[in-house]
Design a protein around this nucleic acid. Sequence first.
RNA 1: GCUGGCAUAGCUCAGUUGGCUAGAGCAGUUGAUUUGUAAUCAACAGGCCCGGGGUUCAAAUCCUCGUGCCAGCACCA
Length: 602
Amino acid sequence: MNAIAIKHNNEIIDLQTAKEKGFEGEPILLDNSKESLEVLRHSTAHLMAQAIKSLYPDAKFYVGPTVKEGFYYDFKTETEIGESDLKKIEKQMLSFAKKKYEIEKYEISMDEAKEKFKDDHLKLAVMQRITDDKVSIYKQGEFEDLCRGPHLPNIGLIRFFKLTKISGAYLGGDSKNEMLTRIYGIAFADKESLKAHMEMLAEAEKRDHRKVGSEMKLFTFREEVGAGFPIWLPAGGRLRARLEGLLYKAHRKRGYEPVRGPEMLRSDLWKTSGHYQNYGENMYFTKIDDVEFGVKPMNCVGHIKVYEDELHSYRDLPIKYFEYGVVHRHEFTGALHGLFRVREFTQDDAHIFCTSDQIEEQIIEVVDFVDKIMSTFEFDYKMMVSTKPEKAVGSDEVWDTSIKALKSAMDKNELPYEIDEGGGAFYGPKIDIKITDAIGREWQCGTIQLDFNLPERFELEYNGENNDKIQPVMIHRAILGSFERFIGILTEHYAGEFPMFIAPTQVAIVPIADTHNAYAKELADKLIDINADSEIYNKNDSLNKRIRTAEKTRVPMLVIIGDEEVEGKTVAIRDRRTREQYNLSEDEFLKLIQTKINEVNF
RNA sequence: GCUGGCAUAGCUCAGUUGGCUAGAGCAGUUGAUUUGUAAUCAACAGGCCCGGGGUUCAAAUCCUCGUGCCAGCACCA
């Protein structure tokens, strides 16, 4: 196998450049290594551009980089291109690839380049971002493109690729700019890897919580109800109740007090908090007797009112209030996505009022709480520290102090994190906890936000040691983030096969004949006594059919009862994965369920 | 919100170039069957073809405006 590029000074250098500059280095072969795929996919993007240009001669191209999931190219044509055109473009790409054009490289000055592409406003936009006085042009057949490389030596090496998605994308990622067409694709060095990748995507699609959620009757959406307003069905209701129950205990153990604020509050309060000015476009408002009210998009103001209900001493701090707070946010229609992004959701929200000396220990405690929950569900997660956004309240000084406090809490405890510049909430910086869905998209779930601003705006205080009035610090935090999003992610994570402690139904009971119904009911009642939900499959169907139906519900445990079981007070258990069967006495069975339900504590 | 696509029964989908009474499977109901580990048989019921408006002798099908959904962008738990 010949090299497709070389590694020189830890940089990928294509053969064209290596030859021109006389560089030498370790050869990069055409395989599925990171470096190789980088070159291959970038060249595939160019091949795609070449095909698009030949099919739509007026096409103008912006940028075509490689990304985590392959590559894309942004371009513009007068013709409307839809999903159905992808096949056509792929076909054209293959026919070019067969011609085995060499990919040639040459350099020209920036001025020459500007002259060469003077009719192409997209290329001119690209060049505006380049500071060098020389640019390189890559040429394959008739097609030329301004590009930094690196590229393959010949397009004939591109054989195993697929165009996956088409959509719009703003020029330069800015919604003020015009929208271009973006086509995504993927390429591999061999056929098997491409096939495996496509199978992986299909597998992920099967886990999609929107599909699984409707199959399992967890939740639904209805056009007549409105976009982004989920409807929780009985099975989903049970799953949620389990999560809520577990979490309730976990909060109580850590000293949180349950409270509840109203669903809407007078707009004046939202003006005091700054939500009216900074978050108003995401809020829903209504008028009652000529007074304007805002439906809460967050729970903090309610909790502030709880705090204000009595005077506090420094001895009381930290004070922790928590609430499964229902919030409404006017999200853009295009942002809505199953349970991951909705307009009404319930946060596992809490606010910690503490002294500035307590910030660090409180942050650490919350991070630890997060870790406990995420590891129970076997989630990989990452933490991001987000700094001051464009729209923000409070002085730079306060912001600096808060960001430093967050970072130092993390640093001192050697917790890894990334920085999200400008990603903070309008009232303070935050640590976001992000987890990944079935197809690799990252979603923000938990969040820990430090806030010096709201205590000031609401003039919160506590009595210090010298009976002086001191302003507390507020920490906003949610661990799951929202029940909606978290349950969506959980559904994909487990592909609907929830573990016993969280499953909507713990046990499916299948009586063999009508004469066994009484014992089935008896078992179901005993299960309720140990906090387990069950369903009896005694419909007028064949036994086989009922077992099949029960298994398809993804219930963690299936028990079958017939004459033998009724007589011996036992159950026949069928494992949902191995289909193996074994018998347990009723007591053993109940104890097993009880253990499995109780083994999890956050 | 933007770009592109889609919308037929509770669900998954057929429905020809505009043409007679819009079909199927699953789910549902009823009846027969009472089953020992992944689909018993039969009958019945189920539709303002997403909603307005238009074109046409004629619209599920064409146009238009909404609504909702899908992919991504931008925005965010």
